[in-house]
Simulated scan of single mutants.
Amino acid sequence: MNKPPFGVLLVNLGTPEAPTSAAVRAYLKEFLSDRRVVDVPKWLWWPVLNGVILRIRPPRVAKAYASIWTEEGSPLMSISRAQQRALKAALAEEYGCDIPVALAMTYGRPSMEDAGRELRQAGAERLVVLPLYPQNSSSTTAAVHDRYARALAPCPHVPASRWITDYHQHPQYIGALADSVRRYWDEHGRPDRLMMSFHGIPKRYETKGDPYPSQCRATAAAVAQALELADDEWICSFQSRFGREEWVKPYTDHTLEEWGKAGVGRVDVISPAFAADCLETLEELEVENREVFMEAGGKEYHYIPCLNDSADHINMMVSLVRENAQGWS
């Protein structure tokens, strides 16, 4: 068969296979065992993880997953599959031939090995690796690097690969985010404040040199500029804290509580760290943090969905692939 000029490996974080305690426990064990995610020494972390967290958290997290689960399964998985199909179709139109696109999750399935077999069977010997993390962090993008290397360790033929480490200020990414907000405002009116909430990381990660928080702030500032917002009309905040140590601030939930108490009437929220809606957006942002704001005195709270498989988002991915596959077509 004719070999494709290259293939594309899309990678996202992962998801439990079912909204059950057993499935969540298996997923959390793999996820929280990664030193990129939790860098506490194993002798200290292991008893906490296995003796406390994996006993207490799975039922509660499973309940949260059940509240967002669909007939197609986990939203993260169904949206990622839709992105995979849409990108494959768009690349076929762009290049005039079939460009294989495989999906892998850093944790859970489809695994990196599953995706590798799919791409190898399609004849791809050169890969563009696209982690679906707009901002680069040791706990996400670097974890993909580690997982990719482990998957390739037994392979006699390592494919040439080009990595997209981030796209936090790519013009099409910023434009797609701003346009999604404009479309929402055209239909629902404008808020008093726009909150751009990003998944948080411990403060000490930033102190050690993790570029993620600064890239989040740069993304938020670029979107605010594109929307022509005044400084007091938007904020960059961080959500999803875990444990007792200090994380990057300002905290999303604390800020919403302060705004509610201060009489801010309407808040709209987007989450530019996520390429696909998932538990952290559909349950934490849309439900939990809505309650925080409303109970503190807020009047209206609107969550604006992620870019997901929108045409703007897929076109941006095509541009990323094209820019990184130069000379391979």
Rank of each mutant, 00 (worst) to 15 (best):
L132D: 02
D179P: 00
E206R: 12
Y251K: 08
G260V: 02
T140R: 10
V129D: 04
H168A: 10
Q83Y: 09
P211S: 09
A176N: 10
R217A: 08
I304D: 00
E206Q: 15
F6L: 03
T255N: 06
L229F: 07
K3M: 12
T219R: 05
G327C: 11
A89Q: 15
A176M: 11
T281E: 08
A66M: 03
H145I: 11
R266M: 11
V24P: 00
S271R: 02
L256E: 04
S21Y: 10
L229D: 05
S271T: 15
D166C: 13
E113Q: 15
V61D: 02
T106S: 11
S329K: 05
M196G: 02
H188Y: 15
L132P: 02
N136T: 10
V321D: 01
R244N: 12
F293K: 05
P19T: 14
A90V: 06
M316L: 14
H254G: 05
N12I: 06
G209W: 06
P110F: 10
N50D: 09
T252G: 07
V287C: 09
R217E: 12
L49Y: 01
E206T: 03
R244S: 15
I174A: 06
Y27V: 03
Q169P: 01
T207L: 08
T106A: 13
C236R: 03
R25N: 12
S237M: 09
M317I: 03
P134E: 04
G51T: 04
P272F: 06
T165L: 10
Q83F: 07
H188V: 01
D277F: 05
A124Y: 04
A115G: 08
N315P: 00
D179N: 14
L28D: 02
A89T: 14
E284Q: 13
F274C: 11
R85F: 09
A224S: 09
L127I: 13
R55G: 00
L76N: 03
N289I: 05
E280N: 12
H170I: 05
S137M: 02
A153N: 06
I79H: 07
A275L: 05
V101E: 00
I201T: 07
Y27A: 02
F6A: 05
F198Q: 02
V37M: 11
V38N: 11
F31P: 01
S111T: 13
A62S: 14
Y212F: 14
Y251G: 04
K208H: 13
C97K: 12
D186K: 10
D231H: 13
R81V: 08
W163S: 08
N12Q: 07
E228M: 03
E257F: 08
R126E: 01
D34G: 10
Q172L: 15
L13C: 08
Y212V: 04
G298T: 07
T281V: 05
V292D: 08
P202R: 10
R55H: 12
P305D: 11
N315H: 15
E286Q: 15
H313A: 14
C278P: 02
A142S: 11
W46M: 14
A160T: 12
D98C: 04
E118R: 14
S74K: 01
L44E: 06
A220Y: 06
C155H: 12
Y107E: 09
E187C: 12
P41L: 13
H302W: 13
S137K: 01
E323D: 15
V101Q: 01
F198D: 03
A23I: 11
I99G: 00
W234S: 06
Q169N: 14
S214A: 15
F242P: 03
N289W: 14
E125N: 12
D98F: 02
M105C: 07
P159R: 10
L320M: 04
C278R: 02
